[in-house]
Design a protein around this nucleic acid. Structure first.
Lengths: 113, 113
DNA sequence: CGGTTGTTCAACCATATGGTTGAATATGAC
DNA sequence: GTCATATTCAACCATATGGTTGAACAACCG
């Protein structure tokens, strides 16, 4: 059974590293080249390249190559999916809280379990 | 330099696994025991125990032990933090989109860069 | 007490991850 | 063509991850 990872797996995994979140942070304002993305980090360019590839696999970054320069751009769609996943839970908690409040307000309401 | 992981790292890492997301999904509706959480998965109880510990380290699950039974409960706070992180980016993209639209609508507006 | 149930612990294993270095590739500049 | 620049590739390494098994621990049941 060779389960290939679901999209959400890749997105959340990509987000689980501060270096990659930092890159997304900078990409949120504008496009950057690989070199520019690497600049703030005390790590080899090869490492940065790997991080970018992780972001690409998650669909969070797209790359446009012009000459020897690679321009990276944020693709927010997968982040929206992740956010959607989280929001679904918010709705659930809200529901639970609402029920709890209701229960506290009207302890004898027969519609309460 | 022994960087200890930031809270967001732990949260996103915890979310990056379908088994753990599944557990959170079930925990969103109600408390579950370890055994109940393990039931849908074709994996050892020890493995499930590790997953739960990962969720606990991320602050997403709290445990109440009564007798030999461990009750697990969802703690939504870290998810809200994660959601907040994502929402911050949504705002940025919205801003960028708004600027782009403005630029397309009024190409000669001197307030446009 | 002894047996069963619920859960963890410890040791182990295979693979993934995040980093390195040095060589390779491709483009641009002279 | 030669040299420098931008980036990746390949090999390697240490540690983390996700899984296993078998033993241990704790608590309830008779």
């Amino acid at each position: 059974m060779v389960e290939q990872p679901q999209p959400l797996d890749l997105v959340f995994h990509a987000l689980g590293d501060p270096t990659r979140r930092g890159m997304l942070h900078r990409l949120a304002t504008r496009e950057h080249t690989v070199g520019e993305l690497a600049e703030p980090y005390a790590m080899s360019l090869a490492s940065v390249s790997k991080h970018i590839k992780t972001l690409e696999r998650a669909g969070l970054v797209t790359r446009r190559v012009r000459g020897r320069i690679h321009y990276c751009r944020l693709n927010p769609r997968p982040l929206e999916k992740a956010d959607g996943w989280l929001r679904a839970y918010e709705r659930l908690w809200d529901l639970r809280l609402a029920r709890l409040e209701e229960l506290l307000r009207h302890p004898d309401d027969p519609s309460n379990p």
